[in-house]
Structures are given as C-alpha cells and as structure tokens.
Design a protein around this nucleic acid. Structure first.
Lengths: 234, 234
DNA sequence: TCAAAAGTGTTTGAATTACACCCATGT
DNA sequence: ACATGGGTGTAATTCAAACACTTTTGA
C-alpha cells in the first residue's frame, strides 16, 4: 500500500498592535488557538486548517482567520510553504505541507481588535513573549516577525495597522512598536513626506491637550509583480 | 463523491548566464521542457513534478531539476506557492498547487552548463525573449526575474553564477547581465570591497592581453532566519 | 504663562556617483 | 610605444541622523 499523499493546509500569522501588559506601550501581538487534539493537545498554535477543493489559497487563509479569530485582515501576504517531512514530530502521522500567510489587522478607532467573545481557546500574546508553540510554529512566527520588520523599512505596511485617517504621531507610534525603538519625530516626518505615501486631509485632530496635529490619509501605492493577484495592496 | 484533494507539485525556475544569440553579451537564460501530454501538449513549461511522500520540498526541487535538465544548482530558494483553482485553465482537471523554487546554476570554467545531450525537449531560452508558456508559468517566471534582480542589489547571489574563483570584472559582468545595465568598474570594485563578500586569493589571472587582474573567492555570508534549513547559503 | 507635542531649520557625516588619472601587461 | 582593461584618487551630490528652535493648543 502506498504512503498517503501529503495533505495541504493553510495557516496565518496575524499581527496587531495592543498595549503591552508590562510596559503599557504599544507592542506587537498575535492571536493563537489552543489545540484540542493530539498531537500537541493543549499547546498553542497558529490558526489554520485544510484547504477546500475550490478555494484560492489566500481565501482559505481569510476563511480560517475569520472562523477562529473573528478577524478580517487589512493586509495579507503569503509567507512561506513549510513542508519538511519531520515537522509534525510524529513519523507515523500524515504528512502536512502548510502554506503560511501573514496578516495585519487594524485597530478600530484606536482600540485593538477583539476576538471571539468568551472563547478561552483563542488568546492574544505579546509577539516577544510567546509560550511554547506546537509543531514548528515558533520558527514560522520568528520568520514572519523578521519579514514584517524588514518590510516595514521599505514598504508602507504600517498603514494597515491603523485606520484610514491618522496623524503622523500615530503612524510613528506604529513604526516604533514594530521596530522596537524610538524614532526622531522630525526625521520621521520628512521620511514619510518624501515617500509620498500620505496626503493631508486638510483636517486636524482636536481634543488633544496640545497643538492639534494634522490628519492624513494614505495614498495608494507601488505594486510588486504579484500584488494584483495574491496580496491585498498596502 | 467528494472532489479529489488538491495535488502538490514542485517546480523550479532555473537561471544561468550564457551569451545572447543576438548581441553575444552575457544574458539570463532559463531551461524549459516541452510538455508531452495534455493540457498544453507541445508547449514549453518549467521543469517540475509531484512531491514524493518522504521528501523535503527543496529536495524535490533538486531532484526534478537533475532529472529533467541534468543540472545541480549553486543556489536554491523557495519563490512562492501558486494555487489558484483556475490556473490549469481546465475546470475538470485535478487541481494542482505548485510550490515553486528558483535556482541559479554556475558556469563551469567560463562556459554555461549544458543540458541532457540530444534531448530536443529541453532547451535554453533567453529570459527576456520567451515563447508562450503552459499554465501560469509566464507569471511565475516574471516574478522569479523580479526577485532575482531585486535580490541582486542587496544580496550576494551573483557569486552563484560563477565558479569559486573569479576576477572582479567577471563578477561585474554578472551584475551587468542580470541588471541589464552597465556599471562603473571603479565604483563596483569599492561597493564589493565594502561589503566584505569577497577575499583576494593572492593569485592573479594570467593570459589576458592586458594587466593581470587579481583573483578573489567569496567569503561566506550573512543569513536570514530560514537560510539554515531551507536555502543553500549564498 | 507654562507644559507638551506639532512642526521647521540647520549642521554634520556617511554613502553614492561621476570621472580623471595612473598601472601593468601583451602586442 | 601604445592599446587595453585593472586599479586608485577625488570632488560633487544626495541622503540620513542629530538636535536646536519656533508654533499652537489646553490647562
């Protein structure tokens, strides 16, 4: 009897910004789901699952993302296909090849998005303070973090974390949270203005206890060869 | 009866440098194989095939690469997983999800590598002058070209096109062929030296009709989070 | 009037580019 | 000697960082 063919699954590393439990500053968080069966029963794992027969890969990522976390991404991009035969750590198990996406979800009017109410098996974790993960999911998260931080420096994905309209200070706070270091407000302003990625709305944000900052909205963007088919444009 | 599960395949876009038919200058070429069955019988396509049950993804890429073109890569990296349900252009056909790699093969002592002798169904094509390709393989090749040219500017993959020992002029010729424009020899030299990616061997290349150039070998490299498992280091 | 963040200007040094020039070899 | 590419020097330019300074609001 021939060995069964490898099974295809789609998983997603989802990033959002929320205040850190410890410092209170904005920090990267990712939602994980608790496994309810072997192997790795009880461990935390990336949301995902099998690919439907007539479903695009990115649609499968969106579907599992919505089912398990009740979230819709503002950015979605394929990360990598993980398919080492040893990755389930059980030689007898059916081999699974996971096509992994990474996603960003926006804050809604300044608040980080919630998850399915009251489900104790879905939970946000600080991306720099994760528990032990099932399978090779720790490797996957580390790679997704590296891609996010690398891409932040030459791309416009920061906009996907915040709403349509924002101040430059809010945008800077996103960059600082993702990169993990403070940025000079003056130089950040010039860097963003030189990139032509934002346009002023003409309005200002009132209600602050200091000078009202101008509001901006992002102006759409450059594209890579695959963006029209496979990614949500930044 | 449920629809059959999607089938996994692995294909590879293989790049090498050989003199252009038209200009005689070095230009990027890729080997293609002619399909011997429907769909797209007679069309040119990327080398590839199904994934064996106990085989790593990159090993499958290497195996198909060797079987169909008799080549071994000096660089191999995963490109993208293509899985749109429509990509076979035949709704009744079994759905195929292709995990595509891209590879570089070196010139052997200044000559571009050969293919399987006398096989009329494997042939090199100029990457900027391709025939119509089967399936979505044209999209895939365009994306691989974009990745190669982008990565050339911040990485060290040029070394993979040439042998262990080379002159800076040879390395520059690789960059010029891939990027498609001339580079200043003086500035190229400084750029490479500043990157610490090469070390002089102490030898020079004799037999030229001008001043003998120094020979270099490349000094290994920085790594990305996945390189130790999934890629051949540059 | 003071604090606090918004926003502007200026200086500095590093990195990139352009190009003039000298060097070593075969013919 | 001279043609040819190897290799070095240097000035001009662009770009990023550091930081002093002015502006506008709420309290």
């Amino acid at each position: 009897m021939p060995a069964p063919a490898p099974v295809l699954a789609v998983s997603t590393v989802i990033f959002s910004l929320r205040p850190s439990d410890t410092t209170g500053r904005m920090a990267l968080h990712i939602p994980l789901v608790r496994r309810i069966r072997e192997p790795f029963q009880g461990s935390w794992a990336l949301p995902g699952g099998p690919l439907e027969c007539d479903e695009d890969l990115s649609d499968a990522a969106r579907r599992h993302l919505l089912d398990t976390t009740a979230l819709s991404p503002t950015y979605l991009e394929q990360l990598y296909a993980f398919g080492a035969p040893s990755r389930s750590s059980d030689p007898a198990a059916v081999r699974v090849v996971s096509i992994v996406y990474w996603a960003l979800v926006a804050q809604v009017s300044g608040h980080a998005p919630a998850l399915v109410d009251g489900d104790p098996n879905v939970c946000w974790f600080d991306a720099d303070d994760l528990p032990d993960l099932a399978f090779d999911h720790r490797t996957i998260v580390d790679y997704a973090l590296w891609r996010l931080r690398t891409k932040m420096e030459y791309s416009r994905i920061a906009h996907a974390f915040i709403g349509d309209v924002f101040t430059l200070a809010q945008l800077r706070e996103v960059h600082e949270a993702v990169l993990g270091r403070d940025l000079d407000p003056a130089n950040f302003r010039r860097m963003i203005e030189a990139s032509d990625s934002v346009v002023p709305t003409g309005e200002v944000l009132t209600g602050t206890k200091h000078r009202p900052p101008k509001l901006y909205r992002y102006s759409p963007p450059e594209r890579s060869p695959l963006s029209e088919n496979n990614e949500i444009p930044v």
